[in-house]
Design a protein around this nucleic acid. Sequence first.
RNA 1: GCGAGCUUAGCUCAGUGGUAGAGCUCUACCUUGCCAAGGUAGAUGUCGAGGGUUCGAAUCCCUUAGCUCGCUCCA
Length: 534
Amino acid sequence: MSNYKDNDGGKRGLDALSSLCKRRGFIFPSSEIYGGINGFWDYGPMGAELKRNIRDAWWRFMVQDREDVVGLDATIIMHPRVWQASGHASGFADPMVDCKDCKKRYRADQLCEEQGAKLVQKDGGWELPEGVKCLQCGSANLTEPRSFNLMFKTHVGPVEDESSATYLRPETAQAIFTQFLNIYATSRRSVPFGVAQSGKSFRNEINPRNYTFRSREFEQMELEFFIRPDEAVELIYGHVVTMADNPDLDGEPQQDWGWEVWHRYWVEQRLKWYRSIGLPSEALHLYWQKGDELAHYARACVDIEYEFPFGVQELEGIAARSDFDLSQHQKFSGKSMEVFDDHLKAAVSAMDEGAKQMFEQRTVSACILRGKSLDEAKAFCAGLFEGRYVPHVIEPSAGTDRLALAILCNAYDEETLTDSKGKPDVRTVMRLHPAIAPIKAAVLPLVKNRPELYAKAREIYKLLRKEWNCFWDESGAIGRRYRRQDEVGTPFCVTVDFETLDDDTVTVRRRDSMEQERVQVSSLVSWIGAAVRT
RNA sequence: GCGAGCUUAGCUCAGUGGUAGAGCUCUACCUUGCCAAGGUAGAUGUCGAGGGUUCGAAUCCCUUAGCUCGCUCCA
């Protein structure tokens, strides 16, 4: 299979792809008749189907095909305190300085740090200390540090003042944490279990780039998987399974897994899913964030990256976030985020005082090493002895739009054929996995001026479209109709010909190999059905 | 956000001050027994937007939006 990367290093491939996406109705610039708007993209008829199929495949894999994950569909606008608790209100606003002479821009804190100084906080704003200079040209002619908050701000109600200010969510995850108690109370699930959500998020990116890869309005598919703290696992099972124990990550999840195993389990699950929708293993890379790249609360984070034409870029981050998120919301809301764990309570009841004391000593010092205060560490142990804890979280968080882009990049192929006259002929074909292809089958009457053949084709079309999104095409020569379907990635073309009238079979033409075979009309639905499942 | 380049039909592009074009696509009809076939007819543009210079602007100037690339950014 030839690939766009073969001839041009990728750049022209993205142009060819975006041109096809426009031409065939996958992706359009938003508001295009007004000149477009930077960082916003619309999905056309084909793109809408593709994205829906991706989302549905994710939901089926992550929620419906599991017994330990439930779903949520929360609002985009939430209480402003949510973003204080999550850290987005402050953390999203990195102060920046520009050099007025050479126009170079720096993050203010990094610029200061490089010169052994410290950024000064003043009146809720920021100030550069004396003597800080531009690293590039040495000029001290720098702008004041200015904040760029990446959250979109809006107002709830008619009055536009600070008291009504809210934000469009910059991630879907926080809604899951804020609804944790309701879901826990109503879903009849116990830890370990997860909550999944897909939906729109908004980030006012400074510089959207690379087609739809970094957009200002985008969709995420996130799972927050809640697990016991390792200490609770240890109390219940007497041991904690780590990667050193070589656990079977392909089988059923086990109750005695520690966070490290759960984290790896989800990495493997996610890779498995990406492969199931047609992204080849070779194009996927894992990037393990190093100690200094991790957020302070994160224990580990792995990025699943894809080889885009413009470089290897992140599709999904899988983070082990400890109990940071729920604890923050507990702190800001005043509502306890602890769960009661019967198994833990039972296990602790069976322990004698000496064993409990030993456990507490060990646990308190370990907690302090991880940065907790003595009081916090003691409260944690006291909670465990009563069967209570704040769950920890493993968070696989994927970008739907960048995944759609990866899938489109991966599917795009230009194949050189030799036509019947011996001339070379380039066939553009989107080799999408059948399960996510926008159109599963096109129904084509071989000719349209034979009423009984035409009617039979209509009948078959109506039969198939009850099952999947199908397409009817009667105009143009049959070869041209096949090639049109190739460009939108339709895996099967069902051609109704004269033989159909005699023996009730049709020609099914395969997109990838262009091979044809005859299939009984009565078995067509099961034949296609078997091929379009993941 | 800074700098450079670009923006003409659905797509790819030609057009350096004098009547807006080509190829492909698309639509209809004819033809057509399986891979972009042929014929006939047809459709599509405020030349990204706004302003200016000029008798006259797609073309020159200014402003603005968008795209691409390089910086920067991506918590």
